[in-house]
Design a protein around this nucleic acid. Structure first.
Lengths: 191, 191
DNA sequence: CGCGTGATTGAAACCCTTCAAGTTTAGTGG
DNA sequence: CCACTAAACTTGAAGGGTTTCAATCACGCG
């Protein structure tokens, strides 16, 4: 799916408006390992992923990474807080694979919002979905063992799981790569 | 602060409209230990807390409670997902203290929204604040020890901490009451 | 080939939990 | 107002899950 189709499907955008929007939204190609955001910078864009895979993560004082979110095709990735409140971010956004993105700034948002009557309402649904997802994750972190968290992750992202290095999955789950290796071994021995 | 003041301050409501809104929003008084929501029920109200203290929590299969949120004076509490998507909740909302609440249903929301031009925009800010808070909590759960999480909690809610039984704080932090007791002892011995 | 990165494995250490017992606190009824 | 009880908190010892550190293996790529 490309950005235009996404706008039509998720936001009810009009086909006739897309040509105009497309002029504002230029595709950006970046290679694996490069960054879209680093701590201290204000995140001015939300990125729509047309192709590729990225991660949003923080770096704690003791030098450990904690992955907040992965984003692959047809997902949005950004530091919402930084975008919305115009405050310096505490996070990194890095490409895991070579990726094609549409950087969306406030101007584009406003243009789409003006042209698309249902935009605000649809955007509110997205925010609520985001909150639901975060709540589920907190619930998992509070209650579940490493094994359970891993199984939930695989269930939720069966496709992603194959494209992401194992140590990043561990970082997302809040465990060490060694622990994840042992969890997987345990599952292979006795599923 | 009461509900009217809250609407004026947070949503820019007009003083002149409040009389009308107030007719719709009847105060509800409940005593400590009673429930506003149980799993399986759709959460039809968001509750504004004029006085008292409540908690939102889930019960896992092994019978353990996990507290997602506390709410005291001037806070809102609800299962947002259930309210918004009209789906059965997985959570409990229980009063920790005798409380005075304003139950807000869709009709009241819509009335306020119609009367108050800035409502949708202000509500979006609330949603973003909520997301920011959830992200911070995930970051803490991923990265910090029991001790650090407790210190952060005390820093964030210095007043609440005195009103909430210790075992509930433990449940919020994702540790056992015994562990929290030991953490506190460690801090008292060597701050 | 040789290097670097990621995955695995082992042993020890650590943090937190569990279970069990004891102590304190708060609320209730006599 | 005291005595009683239940709930909350503390403390100890044992155990489990996860981390840490270190070594080894597997693989891709210059």
């Amino acid at each position: 799916m490309n950005f235009s189709q996404y706008l039509i499907e998720k936001f009810g955008a009009q086909e006739s408006d897309l040509a105009y929007i497309k002029e504002l939204a230029e595709i950006k190609k970046i290679s694996a390992g490069s960054f879209l955001l680093k701590p201290g910078k204000v995140c001015n864009h939300t990125f729509f992923v047309e192709k590729g895979l990225l991660r949003l993560y923080s770096l704690s004082e003791n030098g450990k990474e904690h992955i907040l979110q992965f984003a692959s095709e047809n997902w949005l990735v950004s530091d919402r807080d930084s975008v919305f409140f115009k405050e310096p971010s505490k996070f990194y956004i890095e490409a895991i694979e070579d990726s094609h993105l549409i950087p969306i700034n406030d101007k584009i948002i406003n243009t789409i919002a003006e042209l698309t009557p249902s935009f605000r309402e649809k955007n509110e649904i997205l925010l609520h979905n985001h909150i639901r997802h975060l709540n589920q994750r907190i619930n998992l972190l509070l209650s579940a063992s490493a094994k359970t968290r891993y199984l939930e992750f695989v269930k939720l992202y069966p496709d992603l799981q194959l494209r992401i290095p194992q140590w990043m999955v561990a970082s997302y789950l809040g465990i060490t790569p060694e622990s994840l290796s042992r969890v997987r071994k345990g599952l292979a021995d006795r599923p």
